[in-house]
């Protein structure tokens, strides 16, 4: 063990935590909005929209995130002139933008399935009761369907958050220096992989531990009847 390497790399690796957190938070927020929309489309009676949402979910769930990241970051280069004309190249040139886009689309697809499961678990009686007292579709969704669905979906969504914390490490493959990217840089410079791994790994474990706790706490809050 090279303790001096550990001591030196600790602050450097901690410096990567904000990057990782920003990646995770941004993509979770955008992904969640996408997921709510696509879950609705998937369940809609319109054949085309249901098929469209289904294909999006299927494609993003059946291919590795790495393909999605490379396709957006490197693949966009093939359409550079076209994107420049549209004025979008400034976005696609940025690794940050591409990483968040790929992560959001990816988690959006997984979360859409989780939310769909939640929505389908809402019992018919509750929806009919809402309709019977004259709720508009939006009110019905906001007051009845969504709150019940989210409780059902929460444990699954917790796992998804942990997967996204782990997946954010792939951003290091397109030059972003978050925890894993910094770890790789230090390993290459110091030849001390085990020491660096211990610190970087613990940072991820701590983050995931906090996520699990927050999810558990929220579950208790949302289902007070079970934990009296």
């Amino acid at each position: 063990m090279k303790f001096d390497v550990m001591k030196e790399s600790f602050p450097q690796l901690i410096g990567g935590v904000p990057e990782t957190l920003l990646l995770v938070i941004f993509s979770l927020c955008i992904g969640f909005i996408l997921a709510v929309i696509f879950a609705q489309l998937r369940l809609s009676k319109n054949r085309f929209w249901s098929w469209f949402a289904g294909s999006y979910i299927y494609i993003f769930r059946s291919t590795p995130l790495l393909v999605q990241i490379y396709l957006i970051y490197y693949g966009s280069g093939q359409f550079r002139i076209f994107l420049q004309e549209l004025g979008l190249w400034t976005f696609f040139r940025e690794a940050w933008f591409c990483a968040i886009m790929a992560l959001s689309l990816n988690t959006g697809a997984y979360t859409a399935e989780i939310i769909r499961g939640g929505i389908q678990s809402v019992s018919w009686g509750e929806i009919e009761a809402g309709k019977a007292i004259g709720m508009k579709p939006l009110t019905l969704f906001r007051r009845i369907i969504f709150p019940v669905a989210i409780r059902q979906a929460l444990p699954g969504y917790g796992n998804e958050i942990i997967l996204i914390v782990k997946s954010s490490s792939l951003a290091s493959t397109i030059t972003i220096l978050e925890i894993t990217g910094i770890a790789k840089k230090i390993i290459a410079a110091t030849y001390a992989p085990i020491e660096v791994f211990i610190i970087a790994g613990s940072l991820y474990l701590v983050m995931n531990f906090i996520v699990t706790r927050i999810i558990e706490f929220t579950e208790h809050k949302l289902n007070p009847q079970f934990y009296r």
Binding site: I162, K166, S167, S168, S169, L170, S172, T173, T180, A183, F197, A200, G201, Y204, L205, N208, F209
Partner: peptide, 8 residues
């Protein structure tokens, strides 16, 4: 193993 990125 489930809490640490595979890449790492």
């Amino acid at each position: 193993v489930r809490g640490i990125p595979e890449l790492l």
